[in-house]
């Protein structure tokens, strides 16, 4: 049976300083007393979580614990599900995004999302990255070209695709496709990036690249990542939140959660006794 000690926690990726005191950072997201329902079925119970600016927060927990649902409330992707209902407050950059006056199109431009399964559009690599700016009204070819290059560079994909920007995005490998999706998200110039198990369908080498990328991106972006991989959570995040049966059991600095969790349930999950 594994025991909890700092020696068992893998080293963090470059760019993620787990000893940093995140309480000093201003909050990028503040969820307060969030309840969420699919029809009559309640899936989130009174969740309150603060995500500091320019940090990585990992959401962990067993399947069906509500961590993905919570993630999707942060850019109101759950609005697409008929019969879903949400109560409570979510402040993004100080504004309550649950207000009816909020324009979800603007919200999603600032709160980008990367999905578990890479979802490139059946278009060229260039058109994939340029899609966000284009739907926002950017038409200038030169501006788009610069943006596509800088986003592909940020996503560590430029060197691999610079000679074939006009070929189909579908011709890329799984790991490249996922980095393309990250580049595509960066192109809308978001403040916050939500990642829903971004590496769960990838091989170890590609996973490694994505994790290093997260370490680089958190210097400029606030990242919230859902992951099933506990090692990954401990490698890439400053803060970890543990969900169980729709409740936020515990959240705190990643080193603390992985070495001295306050809750028994958290310890059981992290040591692999269930989940």
């Amino acid at each position: 049976m594994p025991t909890l000690s700092s020696g068992n926690v893998p080293p963090s990726v470059a760019g993620v300083d787990r000893d940093l005191d995140m309480s000093a950072h201003p909050a990028a997201i503040e969820a307060r007393h969030l309840d969420f329902y699919y029809g009559e079925h309640q899936v989130l119970f009174d969740v309150s979580l603060t995500v500091p600016e320019r940090s990585v927060t990992a959401l962990i927990g067993p399947s069906g614990c509500g961590k993905s649902t919570f993630l999707r409330t942060l850019n109101r992707m759950n609005d697409l599900i008929e019969g879903s209902r949400c109560q409570g407050e979510i402040l993004v950059e100080g504004q309550n995004i649950m207000e009816p006056a909020v324009d979800v199109v603007l919200l999603r431009k600032h709160v980008g999302m990367v999905f578990q399964k890479s979802t490139p559009f059946p278009k060229s690599i260039f058109d994939n990255v340029a899609y966000g700016p284009r739907v926002a009204g950017e038409k200038n070819r030169a501006v788009l070209a610069d943006l596509v290059e800088s986003c592909l560079r940020k996503a560590a994909l430029w060197e691999e695709v610079k000679d074939r920007l006009t070929t189909s995005a579908m011709s890329l490998s799984g790991g490249q496709q996922q980095r393309l999706c990250i580049a595509r998200t960066l192109a809308t110039d978001p403040r916050i990036i939500l990642m829903d198990e971004p590496a769960s369908a990838l091989d170890p080498a590609s996973t490694d690249r994505i994790e290093n990328l997260i370490g680089e991106l958190c210097a400029n972006y606030t990242i919230v990542i859902v992951t099933h991989n506990m090692q990954q959570a401990s490698r890439v995040s400053h803060q970890t939140a543990f969900f169980y049966k729709g409740k936020l059991i515990e959240s705190g600095p990643t080193m603390k959660i992985f070495t001295h969790p306050s809750e028994k349930k958290t310890e059981d999950y992290i040591t692999g006794r269930f989940g």
């Binding site: 992707m77 199109v105 980008g112 999302m113 979802t119 899609y131 999706c181 998200t185």
Partner: peptide, 27 residues
């Protein structure tokens, strides 16, 4: 047309009409 395309388009800040016109109908 796979629904993941629609969701991805909406997540990039496209409106429903832009999603239909630029992604769903071409596909």
């Amino acid at each position: 047309v796979p629904s993941s395309i629609r969701v991805a388009s909406l997540a990039l800040g496209a409106t429903r009409w832009q999603t239909i016109w630029r992604q769903v109908i071409p596909a």
